[in-house]
Design a protein around this nucleic acid. Sequence first.
DNA 1: ACTTATGCATAAGAAAATTATGTATATATT
DNA 2: AATATATACATAATTTTCTTATGCATAAGT
Lengths: 112, 112
Amino acid sequence: MANSKLYKGSLNTIILKLLEEQGKMYGYEITQKVKSLTKGELSITEGALYPALHKLEAEGLLDVEVTKVDNRLRKYYKLTEAGEKETVNRLAELEEFIRSMQNLVNPDWRIQ
Amino acid sequence: MANSKLYKGSLNTIILKLLEEQGKMYGYEITQKVKSLTKGELSITEGALYPALHKLEAEGLLDVEVTKVDNRLRKYYKLTEAGEKETVNRLAELEEFIRSMQNLVNPDWRIQ
DNA sequence: ACTTATGCATAAGAAAATTATGTATATATT
DNA sequence: AATATATACATAATTTTCTTATGCATAAGT
């Protein structure tokens, strides 16, 4: 993965944003969604994703619902109320960060 | 620093980009430049900056020139030829990364 | 039969920061 | 004159956040 080193620190925000958008998702689904949304540019490794989900749950930002589909386990995650609030904050931070990065590396870019 | 956790992985690219732009810079100057360019949004800590400069130098991407100004030490860094080539690659990667992140967190954004 | 996809998880290690600390000189403030 | 802030470098200890490797299990494709 070309950009694998670059998304450090934003994984949690990506997870929260996707859950805000999609309502509920399970781990494997998140990895596939990120791949498709970024046309393969970013892939989340399982070694990063699952610990991140567990931590967000421990922090009270996510709720889990375990189900079985086709005889296989699925753990659906969704935002708690606290998670919804926190998502707003983290997204604002990430967007501000992206703008700052753009100012640094390409001051000519403009956001419409 | 609000966004301090978010630029992980991009510090080296930021350094290279600034040196490409400015020709030569010293460490303290880089910290101030990043602050001013991002209106205080990003600040590079010294504990991150100096090891990064040393590493880039060890990799042959930077050259150093030590001078004394007002009886104080300054270490001016500039890109080597290898550094100039690498800067192009890393900037392309970072820009691609930024676009990917935008697709994830705000698909409505467009780059002009 | 074998491989790939789906789905979870964790441990070991590496990378890249933060935080804390240290040294030293110059300038501004009280 | 004393003190604080700014300038300028550096490194060690620690933490955060990944990657890589490994493991288990079922389903679907070849």
